[in-house]
Design a protein around this nucleic acid. Structure first.
Lengths: 246, 246
DNA sequence: TTTTCTATTGAACATCGTTCACTCAGGTGC
DNA sequence: GCACCTGAGTGAACGATGTTCAATAGAAAA
């Protein structure tokens, strides 16, 4: 009975995506002509969905529709949605290129690696939430960890502070990537977009007796164009473990 | 037809919780004797659910069952589950007590405030995910921000670095709270619990040619009892903005 | 050509958030 | 004392989600 909705105007997003995906190619192409489903193609399709519509739109049905397949077909190549999340994070991590450690530029190298990871996260909005379901110590994650560790150790940082600082940097990169989704295109409860000028105005509207500093320093609170805050925080994390002079 | 399952052995968790909640009091108490539902009672019940069973178990039906009410009844006092998330975070933030700034102890005071927030997050496992649905600048959040800002400014930190460091600290506290859920009781893909000794063993099993540093420094990588890493990272964030001598 | 096997389907199941027509207890005007 | 109204709460639904599974179709093997 819900299939009736195909001929009507409103249709579910999954079915809509399936219709879009079925546009190319002959309409009734023999099924076997389609290249077989693999875990790699599932991950690629999932990443495309996230890139175009965000992590909230990532659905098993949505991925299956993008692959012109049935939802159940995915489970022959992927155990869970959690495993799909894991594979996506692994793919993202594998794209990060690690430099050969240069003791003179260790800090810049470390920041660059973190920036690569941040850009991958930002390219696929909200995908950092997949790390909550992903394995904490996968091989791809450990690879970046190893690379960063090599950079810091080459810079003369002792192993334990280096490991802890890298851990903190990873967690910050993730949190920054999720939070920055709504930093500039901030949404009101009514759905109105709030830019920085309006944000300052709002902070200034606070009662000055209970929020004196916030009212007084609203510009500093909302400052930080681009990724200035990101670089600032990573600078703090890496500056604190600097061995001698940088 | 699914109602048949009440008399059988297996029953859904929500229904089970409703049965448990119905144990006390007269079985067929007149409905009006129950104290009315308010937003505050909903938030309290939701927090109890999260404290006992984790954020994943937080369901509108589950909260309604704990209140011995119908799921739809909640929507008269709470617009969304997102608004419920917002209210829970607000409640948690309101429990954080802010000290009067003492310029001599500004760093310890700042760390203490962050620790309070961390302990609230850790008390309700996974609840930090509610901040993803919550308003980014609620009054309760701004209150803590104001308090921390007062502490740092009293310590002589310039406004902009103070604001940015506080922001970074907040994001780290959240990420730390979510991640630490599976830090010590780490789960294998098979569900086996992995303690630190086994974690070291696993890191040592890595191929030494591709992970030389990880293999060599496995103990340092897994070290950090209790909240040592937490204190370490906050120390880095606050040390970097220290005005002169601490 | 026939058989076997593996990948895929399509329909289900349980659960989730959310909505809505209805009920029902308690206060209000006669 | 009685009818009315009002608003909070109910219970059943709707659509969407992850996941499972018997049935099946296509290709490979005999």
């Amino acid at each position: 009975m819900t299939d009736r909705s195909v001929s009507r105007g409103i249709v579910s997003r999954d079915r809509w995506a399936a219709q879009i995906a079925a546009l190319d190619g002959t309409p009734s192409a023999p099924r076997s002509r389609r290249e077989p489903i693999t875990a790699g193609r599932i991950v690629d399709a999932a990443l495309q969905v996230v890139e175009a519509e965000g992590f909230d739109a990532l659905t098993m049905r949505r991925v299956a529709a993008a692959l012109q397949a049935s939802p159940g077909a995915l489970y022959a190549h992927v155990r869970d949605k959690a495993e799909l999340d894991d594979l996506m994070i692994g793919e993202l991590c594998s794209r990060v290129t690690l430099p050969v450690p240069d003791p003179a530029r260790w800090k810049a190298q470390a920041i660059d690696v973190c920036r690569q990871l941040r850009d991958q996260y930002l390219r696929y909005p909200g995908i950092w939430r997949a790390t909550l379901a992903a394995a904490p110590h996968s091989l791809d994650t450990l690879r970046i960890n190893e690379g960063l560790l090599a950079i810091l150790l080459a810079g003369g940082v002792p192993p334990q502070p280096a490991a802890w600082a890298i851990d903190a940097a990873f967690q910050y990169v993730g949190a920054y990537s999720v939070m920055s989704l709504r930093r500039h295109p901030d949404q009101d409860t009514d759905g109105r977009v709030v830019d920085r000028a309006e944000l300052i105005e709002r902070l200034r509207m606070l009662p000055a007796d209970r929020f004196p500093i916030t009212v007084a320093h609203a510009p500093e609170l909302t400052s930080g164009e681009g990724h200035a805050r990101f670089d600032f925080t990573l600078g703090l994390l890496l500056e604190g473990v600097t061995p001698d002079t940088s």
